[in-house]
Design a protein around this nucleic acid. Sequence first.
DNA 1: TTGAAAGCGCTAACAT
DNA 2: ATGTTAGCGCTTTCAA
Lengths: 331, 331
Amino acid sequence: MTIAKLAKVSHTTVSRALNGSNLVKEETREKIRAIAKEIGYTPNISARGLVNRKTFLIGVFFSEMESGTSPSFLVDVLNQAREALPTGYIVSVDSIGNYKGNALPVGRYDGVVIISQAESDDVFIDQVRDQHIPMVVLNRQLSREDIVNYATDDYLGAQLLIQYAARMGHERIGILEGHPKFSSTKERWRGYVDSLNKAGLQFNDQWVKVGDYLPKSGYDKMKELLSGSAVPSCVFVTNDDMAVGAIRACEDLGFRVPDDISILGFDDTEYSKYLVPRLTTIKKPTHALVRKGIVALTNLLSAKNVTNRTETLRPSLVIRESVANVRNETN
Amino acid sequence: MTIAKLAKVSHTTVSRALNGSNLVKEETREKIRAIAKEIGYTPNISARGLVNRKTFLIGVFFSEMESGTSPSFLVDVLNQAREALPTGYIVSVDSIGNYKGNALPVGRYDGVVIISQAESDDVFIDQVRDQHIPMVVLNRQLSREDIVNYATDDYLGAQLLIQYAARMGHERIGILEGHPKFSSTKERWRGYVDSLNKAGLQFNDQWVKVGDYLPKSGYDKMKELLSGSAVPSCVFVTNDDMAVGAIRACEDLGFRVPDDISILGFDDTEYSKYLVPRLTTIKKPTHALVRKGIVALTNLLSAKNVTNRTETLRPSLVIRESVANVRNETN
DNA sequence: TTGAAAGCGCTAACAT
DNA sequence: ATGTTAGCGCTTTCAA
């Protein structure tokens, strides 16, 4: 190797010097460092990976990258992951869909974090587990104990919202659902129905519409909802992206928000607090979730054991202005 | 190697069989394939990379991932990149900031795409070039010819906007700038000033505010702007994210958009068409930009030469409802 | 059509 | 404190 020749030492010494081994004289180390810098030496990752069985690559996999996963959430995850990982690690992004069927190349990833939205991800999850690649699954609650899994309590989030609406006097509460296959959709739906029951409120078929978590569906479905014979006084739009479209639809049909109709969101996106009206929504502890996940993964990487193998984080209600207080009307 | 033993051939033959060499009997190949599948064999990427000098990893680097780069743009880039790349390649994400100073490990990336926002990225760009890693720089126009570089014409975009506002009769046009260090900020500013001049419109110091491309700054700065002694009739808010905040600020101070004040955006984000009012903005050909970039990079990877080494793509004006027609007033 | 041997750049075990 | 040697898993000559 060039650098070894220049320094007149063996390449072993070079390796040691550059890796901070204490088996080199400080003087030698300095000389080697200088030369390395001089000629712009950087280690060959493949060679190093081959002997160490480490690639310093963490794969982040999303159920669906093109749609369904909101961009801000995706970027949030990526940023948190990069920050929380030990130095030297880099992060790749991919869609689970790309791997349906074929296994991940062995030794390609030191670890994997899966941002799962739907049960259909399970075949991929099983595959990765069978390959014994360190893995954490985030975002969606798995019903098993063999995998490190952190999720937000969507069920609770929905309940918080509906309870709040009920407290504000709403009795006719509709729902605009997200992507039908997503677990979050199912959990939010459960929270909605259960809370309605607990509050002794009526359930009405006409007030439930199915969207896909994208703004357009919020717009289209809200229009449908408002065109029905009976209109609810409040609609639980199950994410903020759809809420933007939904509010637009209200506007277009002459319904003022929240005076004529109240809107509940979910996610507390960056722009939610600037909408007209400012959105009452649910804030998910995304940062904490991802951070916990990465910490666990880091432990897994160094073969430490993870104590909290599974956990559900509590979201919180963010009250703003999109829900009207209609208690007086009913008194 | 296990698979070699099981098939009773040498590992050389296994390698050949799995890589589609025609130097193996079809029968042998089948047998090997079957066994490989059976035991779930996947090649070791590091070993392969070591001999082939390929890692099948493309690094995507952003100026700033945490702020400044809008999430939807970032995700768009990532998706386009993944789709346009030949199969087998995976994509990593990183922030240029992480590499200030130290060089990229040699052989870590087969190629690199840089989404550049600011001139300060040049040191990183130079470094990568010095390492002779195939690279394309997107988003920001470089003033050099030695690097493949595609960008959107921000200057033109700004002109389109201001010309439109002028056509609608606006004479007092303000601006809410983005992150001061970003090239896009400078280009949009140039377009603003030049168009004002061409239209013979007055320029007023009080009507220019500096934000950072995030919604909050849109809100804060617009409030400042509206609190001045003389208020413009139209404000060029230099991206849609800030426009959301800006519209909110107008609302809070009792200015109706567009009746009392008109707003121009930039980017045409997913939600722009659902805002109240729907935003008149600039649509950037992001898909085409990234796709061109990846195609060029792919050519670079296979040592083909790239014909269009540099190009500026034209954005287009999207007229919606955030600008009032005030021509009558001035007649 | 197959195998044997060499070597990619690195780290680690074992001298010295 | 440093060098020698071997070997990680793969592809690629070179022989057979």
